[in-house]
Design a protein around this nucleic acid. Structure first.
Length: 519
RNA sequence: GUGAGCGUAGCUCAGCUGGUAGAGCAUCGGUCUGUGGCACCGAGGGUCGCGGGUUCAAUCCCCGUCGCUCACCCCA
């Protein structure tokens, strides 16, 4: 018996994309394919899940993104360990709030015990050397910190980050993005030996364990492109941006804005971050609690703050454009020249930053209308450090990812919707004598590439036409006694009721040319 | 993790200081056995998200819970 209370429903943050929306999605993705191929990008399909460490390393292991925001499966160590780690981060939060470090040390001890047990279990063969090293390190820090209460804060943070890396061996995660996967595939398949720059694109679902909100899902879809190779010529960046702009134009997403910035390289950015941090400390008491926290954790993110009362302060902060090294400044200037030459409209946004270390120089973002606070439909940038970070040869890279969910939402909320052709022909047959003819001609029409609906059961003629109308068919093909006797078909155009008698040959000719006319 | 708003038919919603439910659209059938869109008539479809409390009586009031939505945090 069906129990309404226990009906299955899509998991939080996931959804069904149904017709007719799914046709819009297919068109959206096909438009990307066609366009990207014309820029000589090629499709790459990587697995939907990968070694957790791939994502952990690319995203920076010190962040808690790994444990909070990814879907991970197959933990080879005991769930005890996961629980102990969770307790550890909880008690750290509490310690920070209450300024009482004692509960944290207790959690550290029970975490170490959990490690001991996990290492000693039958799964010991699967633990990594890294795990043991981290384990020993935590032990060392823990005993040291007891003697030096000055540094407990730093020690705690280090322990947390070490703890987060233990037990990741054999752990797999659903991909939260695809750049790391593409970089991994590039390395694994020796693609650096391919001629020229390697230009790849991908289309598919990604997974992040975030609270859903407007345009934000736990399973969401991205269309991305990456250029990997030896060159970091600004023209590559410009071509990627051109392709992006053309894409948004082609899908009718007109009210978009492209923001561009340069965040320097590993030489100049750290210096800027320090300058920024210094300045932020000076104005600390004028900032909200979130921004105050970011001064230490991620000063660049302060620039992102949306709080109205902070805007005036942020406007006076030092800008990275004044702190770029000569090479980066040159690269950015050339990029802007290229964009102008290509007639690409953009806005320079010095507050557009990316937090992760492997990002270099060019960053960009596209925002669209009608999306509430989640208005970015595309983000990207240069990541010259990533491939090497993942153990590959020194390689330059740039790429972007378009959030399809949001982009399509924006199209639906004010863009120009494409006219997507649906059902071409509804075969309105009546009388068993007409049925074999109906089956035959239906197959012929389908072979010619037309979408055809053939009712499985005989219907009253009026119903038949009514259904044809409701299904949105462009034509009704009428086959009854008269047609069978005369060996012809009656084709009725539903839009204007125009009707003509045709032979099979004429019918196929007519409908095929009509189809070609529709593109 | 935090906050706010909302849960009544497939969809959009109504429901009066509390008297165990309605409309429009959609679906199906009929008027209508060779001509759709219109009109008219009819039908199916609901333990009013779930649990508890107050009450003679709860869709309505109270508490809890689950779900959805939006925003914050985060955003690779």
């Amino acid at each position: 018996m069906a129990d309404h209370r226990r009906q299955f429903r899509a998991i939080k943050g996931t959804r069904d994309i149904l017709p007719p929306d799914s046709a819009l999605w297919n068109w959206f993705e096909q438009t990307a394919r066609d366009l990207f191929e014309s820029y000589n990008f090629r499709d790459i399909r990587t697995p939907a899940f990968e070694d957790t460490n791939l994502f952990a390393r690319s995203v920076g292991e010190e962040t808690d993104i790994v444990h909070k925001e990814m879907y991970s499966i197959g933990d080879s160590l005991s769930s005890n360990l996961s629980f102990a780690r969770w307790m550890l981060s909880k008690s750290h939060e509490t310690s920070v709030r209450t300024h009482d470090i004692q509960p944290f040390w207790k959690s550290v001890d029970s975490f170490l015990r959990a490690c001991d047990e996990a290492f000693a279990s039958e799964e010991i063969g699967r633990k990594g050397d890294d795990d043991v090293q981290c384990f020993e390190k935590i032990k060392a820090i823990r005993s040291e910190a007891g003697n030096d209460p000055e540094n407990t804060e730093d020690a705690a943070r280090e322990i947390l980050s070490l703890a987060n890396t233990i037990g990741l061996h054999g752990l797999m995660s659903l991909r939260p993005e695809a750049t790391a996967s593409v970089a991994r595939a590039y390395i694994e398949n020796g693609m650096q030996t391919l001629p020229g720059n390697v230009k790849l694109y991908y289309i598919g679902p990604m997974f992040r364990r975030e609270r859903p909100q407007k345009g934000r899902y736990r399973q969401f879809y991205q269309i991305g492109a990456e250029v990997l190779g030896q060159s970091d010529a600004p023209a590559i960046d410009a071509e990627v941006l051109e392709m992006l702009v053309v894409f948004f134009k082609r899908v009718g997403l007109t009210r978009t804005t492209l923001y561009v910035n340069s965040i320097g390289c590993k030489e100049c950015r750290p210096k800027y971050v320090e300058v920024l941090r210094e300045k932020l400390r000076e104005v600390k008491d004028q900032l909200g609690p979130d921004s105050q926290r970011r001064i230490d954790t991620n000063p660049l993110r302060v620039l992102d703050s949306k709080l109205p009362e902070e805007q005036a302060i942020i406007a006076k902060l030092p800008r990275i454009s004044d702190h770029l090294c000569a090479e980066c400044r040159e690269h950015f200037a050339k990029l802007k020249e290229e964009l102008n030459m290509r007639g690409i409209a953009y806005e320079e946004n010095w507050r557009l930053v990316r937090g992760l270390d492997y990002y270099t120089r060019t960053t960009f973002e596209v925002t669209a209308e009608g999306l509430g606070s989640q208005n970015a439909v595309c983000g990207g940038g240069r990541y010259d450090g990533l491939v090497e970070l993942l153990g590959g040869p020194p390689t330059k890279g740039i790429g972007f990812a378009i959030g399809s969910d949001r982009a399509i939402l924006s199209i639906q909320e004010g863009g120009t919707l494409p006219h997507l052709s649906g059902l071409a022909v509804f075969v309105a047959w009546m009388g068993q004598a007409a049925y074999p003819t109906a089956v035959h001609i239906t197959r012929k029409l389908r072979e010619a590439g037309l979408a055809v609906e053939l009712p499985a059961e005989e219907m009253k003629f009026k119903k038949s036409l009514g259904l044809a109308d409701k299904l949105g068919a462009r034509y009704a093909l009428i086959i009854g006694e008269d047609e069978v006797a005369a060996g012809t078909f009656t084709l009725k155009r539903l839009a204007d009721s125009e009707q003509k008698k045709l032979s099979e040959y004429e019918l196929l000719e007519y409908l095929e040319s009509e189809r070609r006319g529709r593109g």
